[in-house]
Amino acid sequence: MPVPLRRLLAAAAILATAAAGGPALAANLKIIAPASPGGGWDQTARSMQQAMQSEKIAGSVQVENVPGAGGTIGLAQFANRAKGDPHQLIVGGYVMVGAIIMNDAPVTLDAVTPLARLTGEYEAIVVATDSPIKTIGEVIDKLKANPGSVSWGGGSAGGTDHIAAGLIAKAVGVDPTKVNYIPFSGGGESLAAVLGGQTTVGVSSYGEFDAQVKSGKLRVLAITAPERVPGIDAPTMKESGVDVEVQNWRMVAGPPGLTPEGKAEILKTIDDMAKTKTWRDTLKTKGWTDTYLAGDAFTAQLKEDIAKAHTILRDIGLAE
């Protein structure tokens, strides 16, 4: 098989040179994106890579995709292989918290060292522009009258979108297990369902809808932010009398068994990265809210978020 093997090596060489970047001055890092290329975690990891490399915070930064089971496959592999190495990172977030609880994953976030929360995206509840529904109040009334008659199209079961739908139902006194949530596998598919009026409403991170909202194809009924977000012409859930606040946050963690020096070093690297212009520009172009929170403050917040997620997943009937 000389020909394909040569092609394989050639392709690998091209890709390797393409990915490696310039000569290493600072430390070389490896970031695990525990998902396939293209999703939020992958984009987060690659944006970090770009900011660190172009602003010379790290030498070469390598991103590795380890997809599977809401990030828990990548998490288990990382906890196992990277032990004590301050030059390896893993990206994760709220969806990973949900997946760990639902799958009763053997390796949890206790097995890694949470370092910092980087970004957040609020959830938006939208309808197609030609939908008869004009306000979130109408959705709530419909939901109270017959929970099954409101179908919610969003991402995978037990993810942030599902949790948001469950929390809204709970907040208005509707049994969360009765929520007619319809999961779609990819952003494109659920967006198509909402645009085509197949589901009553769509619920996802606002960024997934942004382009369609701007081109006038979708109407935002409400967002799950604590206060109005500049650039989004919609009330918060709280304004509409529903006490719900949800944010799909993304974070970065280090391996278990870091020395205090090792942890301080990598925290500084992340801190430097979060301050760079490249990173700030990325946040803007991707529409990610800056929710930077590092070190012990984040560890405490994470513990609280995990407990909350557990409660709501139990309420929806997805966890025990």
Binding site: G38, G186, G188, L191, A192, S215, T285
Partner: peptide, 30 residues
């Protein structure tokens, strides 16, 4: 659907969408 609505319907299309966004471009009628 990628060019007219900004709907990525395959893994490659999803990454191409990220590519568009990298340049501050939003696919769709606009």
């Amino acid at each position: 659907p990628l060019l007219t609505l900004g709907l990525p319907t395959s893994a490659t299309a999803a990454i191409m969408l990220a590519g568009f966004q990298q340049y501050g471009l939003n696919p769709g009628p606009l």
